[in-house]
Nucleic acid binder design. Structure first.
Length: 491
RNA sequence: CGGGGUGUAGCGUAGCCCGGUAUCGCGCCACAUUUGGGAUGUGGAGGUCGUAGGUUCGAAUCCUGCCACCCCGACCA
């Protein structure tokens, strides 16, 4: 009876329909941009709040910088500019006028051409470092630990809801430090925060690693990342943390005097996660019935559905449920009592499953007589009948259990899908069959990396942190290798 | 930017080849019976057929221009 295509048959169609039917987002009239609907946005807000708290707990503060970046500033850090040049929206004019040839229509006023074009930020390093120049003079001004919640625009050719849209929401942290060591520590600290957020809040296990030179952020010396695995065996880059070295400090001339009055460039980092995390959340846990949300991020954690026999019965159930709703709320659990008579219970069951509500409580005439309720959990779809008086403790416990369960399920799926291979034949076989991460030796050259990509569409997702050194030979070139890296096809 | 498509009610579509005033499903509205897994019946509302022009007695249908969107590539958090 489901409204969704089968996940196993057409993963893309399943994803698109799920996003649509669960009321998360939809394509807008604007090319490549999406509308995030209220339900989807409330999940994003919960993610924002949790992340924001983690940032603040580690000494960061929020600020806001302009949407527009003058072209001259944008091009100051050459590698960064070059990396983003092909996907920039550019403002060239500041005025429209009535079109003399088409009554009632407007045209761009050619008289209103900007002397200098404005780039709509694809990322904010340029505008922020240009500002930091004025904010940093002394070691006393450091470290500067700032985060911005913003929208950015990257003119992607092909877009997908949440995973790749022309405009997306994100946070971008930009920090400046007196020493290289401190900046590197900041970079890895933020990577750890991202990993912790993914695992604790999103119930999403991730691999922490370093990008190869080829996959590195344009303008960074090192890019650290968290990589997650989706249920179709493709990898998703869920967050990045960049060690910028002194590249932006030099490009924007950001210097400070140390205690010995010696002038040096500062060391920088930047790090970000985006609404792409919504895509990860959706794809990681959901099933053919719809969304499966980790309780911590679910806007509605518990829904109560009455199953009345007539008007009077409904009023009796209302009265019985009312104190329960209050008690759940008092425990900080977000609960919705859906006693609308415009929809039938079966419709509501399906609806809340589609929306991923972790726990559903059904209360009918039968329960009224027996002093029970029926509790259904979204993750396993198990139903249990328990005594009404035990509901509070049971639900509190169940929410924790569901959070753990979906994490463990994703974790074992992920671990089962990291496959060691020794030959390129094996490599291709795993990639085309089982999918997932492939742990293989690589000779360390961009050349080999690109050839493998061309042959298989698989890229090096990362060089995992803390992986043991192990002598071997590259699966592709046969040249010597010191350690294994993770390959996968990626979103 | 290359290659291929599609624009018909809020959504998904049939009709187009072969011209005659638009089909079906979902959704919506009303009433009745229903309510422990997406109810059923009856009645009803809703469409400048993407847009501009042409051919014709007559155009969703044929012709021309324009616009928009989608899919496959290159690009990508």
């Amino acid at each position: 009876m489901g409204v969704l295509p089968k996940r196993s048959e057409d993963y893309s169609a399943w994803y698109n329909e799920l996003v649509k039917h669960a009321d998360l987002a939809e394509n807008s009239a604007v090319r490549g941009c999406m509308v995030i609907k209220p339900y989807g946005y409330s999940i994003w807000e919960k993610m924002q709040q949790a992340l924001d708290k983690m940032f603040k707990d580690t000494g960061h503060t929020n600020a806001y910088f302009p949407l527009f970046v003058p072209k001259s500033l944008f091009e100051a850090e050459e590698k960064n500019a070059e990396g983003f040049a092909k996907e920039c929206a550019v403002v060239t004019h500041y005025r429209l006028k009535n079109d003399p040839n088409k009554p009632g229509k407007l045209m761009v006023d050619p008289e209103a051409k900007l002397e200098e074009e404005l780039v709509v930020r694809p990322t904010s390093e340029a505008i922020i470092w240009n500002t930091y120049k004025n904010w940093i003079q002394s070691y006393r001004d450091l470290p500067l630990l700032i985060n911005q919640w913003a929208n950015v625009v990257r003119w992607e050719m092909r877009t997908r809801l949440f995973l790749r849209t022309a405009e997306f929401l994100w946070q971008e942290g930009h920090t400046a430090h007196a020493t290289q060591a401190e900046a590197i520590a900041e970079t890895t600290q933020m990577l750890d925060i991202y990993a912790e957020f993914a695992e604790k809040f999103m119930a999403l296990p991730v691999v922490k690693g370093v990008k190869t030179a080829n996959e590195r952020f344009a303008g960074a010396d090192d890019t650290y990342c968290i990589e997650a695995l989706m249920q179709d065996g493709k990898a998703l880059q869920a967050g990045t943390s960049h060690f910028l070295g002194q590249n932006f400090a030099k490009a924007f001339d950001v210097k400070f005097s140390d205690k010995e009055n010696k002038l040096s460039h500062v060391w920088g980092t930047s790090w970000g996660v985006s609404t792409r995390l919504m895509g990860a959340l959706i794809m990681a846990h959901s099933d053919d019935e719809g969304l499966v949300l980790p309780p911590i991020l679910a806007p509605i954690q518990v829904v109560i559905v009455p199953i009345p026999k007539g008007e009077e019965s409904l009023r009796a159930i209302d009265a019985k449920v009312d104190p329960l709703v209050k008690a759940l709320k008092a425990k900080g659990i977000s609960v919705k009592y859906d006693n609308r008579d415009t929809h039938k219970p079966g419709w509501k069951f399906a609806e809340y499953e589609l929306k991923g509500v972790p726990v559903r409580i059904a209360m009918g005439q039968r329960d009224m007589e027996n002093g029970t309720v029926e509790i259904a959990r979204r993750d396993t779809k198990e139903k249990t009948v328990i005594a009404f008086d035990d509901v509070l403790a049971y639900v509190e416990n169940l929410l924790v259990e569901i959070q753990d369960n979906i994490y463990n399920k994703a974790l074992s799926y992920r671990d089962e899908h990291i496959t060691k291979v020794e030959t390129f034949e094996e490599f291709k076989e795993v990639l085309n069959g089982k999918g997932g991460f492939i742990s293989a030796h690589w000779d360390g050259t961009t050349e080999t990396e690109l050839k493998i990509k061309e042959a298989t569409k698989a890229t090096i997702r990362c060089i995992p942190l803390g992986s043991v050194e192990e002598a071997g030979v590259c699966v592709f070139s046969g040249k010597p290798s010191k350690q294994r890296v993770l390959f996968a096809q990626a979103y």
